[in-house]
Design a protein around this nucleic acid. Structure first.
Lengths: 145, 145
DNA sequence: AATACTCGGTCTCATTGTGAGACTAATGGA
DNA sequence: TCCATTAGTCTCACAATGAGACCGAGTATT
């Protein structure tokens, strides 16, 4: 279950390059790689934030919206539908008035938390360096061509 | 309250929930968390693919385009500029005619490969289950409300 | 010698994606 | 009585993106 942890990857990611070469087919085209359809979902602007919200506990629709104030209803609905379609989130409707709908991570959704956390930890760790790089870049002379 | 079964996640994810709670501020709003600005970049449609391409070796502009056939020049330029600005990619211009420009990952860029690989391995592993979930969802009756 | 092609872009324009906010209907609270 | 609440959907305006023309100088083809 925890194969992905330190031991395998920490050493400098041997085998990783090999995998990258497999994903990139011989002709250098990895445009059709099936991983892409999944990364497209994860790489969505809102998906990660919604998953982090649901990682904490089951949320109702409006609770997620309050947790992510700048997501529109429209995009939250769409993001949740996509996540439900992919089997990462489960939707449960209570026939109350006004309506009540609960969203929670499925087991599959939970399994994403580990790699996602690794990524977020990286973001957290490198955030100062990236901020510095941005400042430098913005202060530098325009691009040489 | 919390249906989240922390035990299932353990084995490497302790403290993760705590971290999520920190990212989500007390009022449940993690909209302004600095991690977000970094995730926004990683969560870009093309960024991941470009990084995977560059993980293999230094590429010239047109080589990347051939590796990712459906990226437009416009978006490739923009993605590379953003990555350069963030200090993940280095750009090197050779004053030849026609021009020649090399892109490679910086050390910071390389440091992203480990968590990124974890994510891609997850995608690779779960891809069949996700594909199945999608099919099920699409064949199921329309949403109950 | 004239033509075409290459490179790494930038530019315009059409299409697509997204955000803001109105609207819903039944209920509880002021 | 009036308004807020709920989980959406709908429309409209605006932002992001993709397609493809265009660039200039040197090299290759004709």
């Amino acid at each position: 279950m925890t194969r992905l942890r330190a031991g395998n990857l920490a050493q400098g990611c041997e085998g990783m390059m090999e995998r990258f070469r497999v994903w990139a087919r011989a002709d250098g085209d990895f445009g059709l790689c099936p991983v892409r359809s999944v990364l497209d979902r994860i790489g969505d602007k809102w998906t990660t934030l919604v998953i982090i919200a649901l990682a904490q506990r089951t949320h109702r629709f409006s609770e997620i919206r309050r947790a992510i104030p700048d997501i529109s209803k429209r995009m939250l609905t769409q993001t949740l539908r996509d996540l439900e379609r992919d089997g990462l989130v489960a939707r449960r409707v209570f026939a109350t008035k006004p309506p009540s709908v609960e969203y929670r991570l499925t087991e599959l959704g939970h399994s994403l938390l580990e790699p996602l956390t690794a990524l977020i930890l990286w973001a957290e760790k490198t955030q100062p360096r990236i901020a510095m790089a941005r400042t430098e870049f913005d202060n530098a002379a325009p691009l040489a061509v």
